[in-house]
Write a protein that binds this DNA or RNA. Structure first.
Length: 329
DNA sequence: AAGCATATCAACCGCCTGGTA
DNA sequence: ATACCAGGCGGTTGATATGCT
């Protein structure tokens, strides 16, 4: 009778949560034929699940050595953040650097993080002095254990399983940047590249939000031979310049309670000490120095991979997409 | 204790790609 | 050349768990 129910109705595709019996059938199939021929499971009448469903179940839940129910470690979090900056939303690719994690795991982790960022940035600022509520602590349990973010390693992921593709090396030049664009933030956010750009753009998600009108001045390389320099990474002071009172960038970032948050900018810093050591404002000290050509060096002005630049590609304004409704988060 | 907000997770959907008949 | 199919992937959704008021 149970089996009868399991099959729903004759010929129908079974959907929904998997039962233990189904898992066992699937495991048996994989044991015998390997993780393939998923469609044959149904055609043989073993299960009324689609091949896709079977594959998904195996990949996400039944495969050996999965870290099911284990929270992302600080290292894993950093890896995801770093690789997301490099690869974008290529979850399957990112997951290959995280043993025991699936693309679904990575996707869910990132999605949760984004929602949290969105929520924090949309909520009104806390009264001064800013204080961490129990609530925010609860909602970022793992993140609070994360030690301050360190500059991403250049040639390997934290998992050590394999190397990240050779990162872009960005160095400074004598003609660093000149400000050329004022970008209304509602236009800045591209849902498909929700990284650092998102964080900034989220501040203006809702037009009736006090932050709705604020604009962020970005910069682009002055000349072609300026080594494709990125817009300068913003400091909290930069955010404060554009945040209308009573908002305070420190408050917002403190609310996040997410030290790894700053990883999206490519530089470390806890919520208590935020800094972008590589950042020199246009017309600043960088004017006088800097190497060009992209070779590795110890030059302190050289930017690490996964920098702010990765989040703000040069053509980022070419494909502006409408923002999703905040209610959909 | 109940109700609400939020986080987490599992699974589905639709699109894309590559192989093959 | 093309139609079909299987599998892979990213986006999304719904259910459940958890914690707070």
């Amino acid at each position: 009778m149970e089996m009868r129910r399991m099959y729903d109705e004759m010929g129908e595709i079974k959907k929904g949560p998997w039962k233990t019996e189904e898992d066992e059938v699937l495991m048996k199939h994989v044991k015998r034929y390997g993780p393939k021929e998923w469609s044959s499971i149904r055609s043989k009448g073993l299960l009324q699940r689609t091949g896709k469903s079977c594959r998904l179940r195996w990949v996400n839940k039944l495969r050996p050595n999965l870290k099911n129910g284990v929270k992302f470690s600080a290292d894993e979090e950093r890896t995801v953040i770093e690789l997301q900056g490099q690869f974008g939303n290529k979850w399957a690719r990112i997951a290959t650097y995280l043993p025991g994690r699936t693309d679904n795991d990575v996707k869910n982790f990132w999605s949760s993080r984004q929602k949290r960022l969105a929520r924090v940035l949309q909520s009104p600022p806390p009264p001064h002095p800013p204080q961490k509520s129990h609530k925010s602590l609860r909602e970022t349990p793992a993140l609070h254990k994360v030690p301050p973010f360190e500059a991403p390693k250049r040639s390997s992921s934290t998992s050590g399983e394999s190397s990240v593709t050779s990162p872009k090396t960005l160095s400074c030049s004598s003609s660093y940047c000149e400000p050329i664009k004022m970008v209304p933030l509602p236009e800045l956010m591209n849902p498909t590249t929700t990284t650092a750009a998102t964080t900034t753009a989220m501040l203006s998600q809702e037009h009736n939000h006090p932050l709705g009108q604020f604009e962020y001045t970005t910069t682009i390389p002055k000349e072609e031979n300026s080594c494709n320099l990125p817009p300068h990474p913003p400091s909290l002071q930069d955010f404060n310049h554009v945040l209308p009172p009573p908002f305070d960038a420190h408050d917002i970032f403190n609310q996040l309670g997410d030290p790894n948050f700053f990883a999206v900018f490519g530089q470390g810093g806890s919520s208590d000490m935020v800094s972008f050591p590589n950042y020199v404002p246009p017309g600043g000290e960088r004017e006088s120095g800097g190497s060009c050509g992209g070779e590795e060096s110890n030059d302190p002005i050289m930017m690490e991979p996964n920098t702010f630049m990765d989040d703000f590609p040069m053509d980022m304004f070419d494909n502006i997409e409408p923002l999703p409704s905040p209610s959909k988060w």
